[in-house]
């Protein structure tokens, strides 16, 4: 197998794997197996996957640098788009199922929930990133593209804040994500320093 075919097949497998949580949830909806509170199950699960893909997307550059496998970068766009896909469904479930598309409920509930405001803010950060994710946009924007896509760092932080804020008492899970995001962003601060030292030596 040529190197090119290997990576193409890997991408296809990665796509199928990434879509699996969605298919399982869809199956759960159709067969009524999402428990006593199916909207909550859907909503939380989609949110979890959005955050997982966001973290995975942030892990690609560090992994590429550590392992020196440059092809890893080819997975970045798809990972980011899956984060956006799950975040969009998470948002849609809230607006469409939880609030039944009711503006009245939206106006009543959102101002009372700081964590929802943070969630909406996070989602609004992801929209321009998804819209400019194409190769064409990347070329057209050039340097600005790099700058714009740094918004993902802020999105990751606010996604974790959104999660931390909604939990009633047990902070274990959101704190795991907080630690992960801290590490992934920390790498980006520390790595250039190390690289400089390495070069100087």
């Amino acid at each position: 197998m040529s190197r090119k075919t290997f990576w193409t097949i890997s991408k296809v497998i990665f796509f199928i794997l990434s879509l699996t949580p969605f298919l399982l949830l869809l199956y759960g909806v159709i067969t009524d197996q999402l428990g006593a509170n199916p909207i909550e199950t859907l909503h939380f699960s989609l949110g979890d996957w959005a955050l997982r893909f966001l973290c995975l997307g942030l892990a690609i550059t560090p992994l590429k640098k550590i392992t020196a496998i440059k092809e890893l970068i080819r997975f970045r766009r798809m990972t980011g788009l899956f984060a956006f896909f799950y975040a969009s469904l998470h948002f849609l479930v809230y607006i469409g199922l939880d609030l039944s598309f009711s503006l009245e409920q939206f106006i009543d509930e959102v101002p009372k929930s700081p964590y929802i405001i943070v969630g909406l803010f996070t989602y609004s950060l992801l929209i321009p990133l998804a819209l400019t994710s194409t190769k064409g946009m990347q070329k057209r924007l050039g340097r600005q593209w790099q700058q714009l896509h740094k918004l993902v760092y802020l999105a990751a932080i606010s996604a974790v804040v959104h999660y931390l804020w909604l939990v009633k008492l047990d902070l274990t899970e959101p704190l795991i994500y907080a630690a992960l995001v801290f590490l992934l962003l920390g790498f980006r601060v520390i790595e250039p320093v190390f690289r400089k030292k390495y070069r100087a030596n």
């Binding site: 509170n37 909207i39 909550e40 939880d98 409920q105 009543d108 509930e109 009372k112 804020w165 909604l166």
Partner: peptide
């Protein structure tokens, strides 16, 4: 309201 969410509606299990 609860300080972090509205109590005006409820989801029926």
């Amino acid at each position: 309201s609860h300080p972090r969410w509205s109590q005006s509606r409820e989801r029926i299990l």
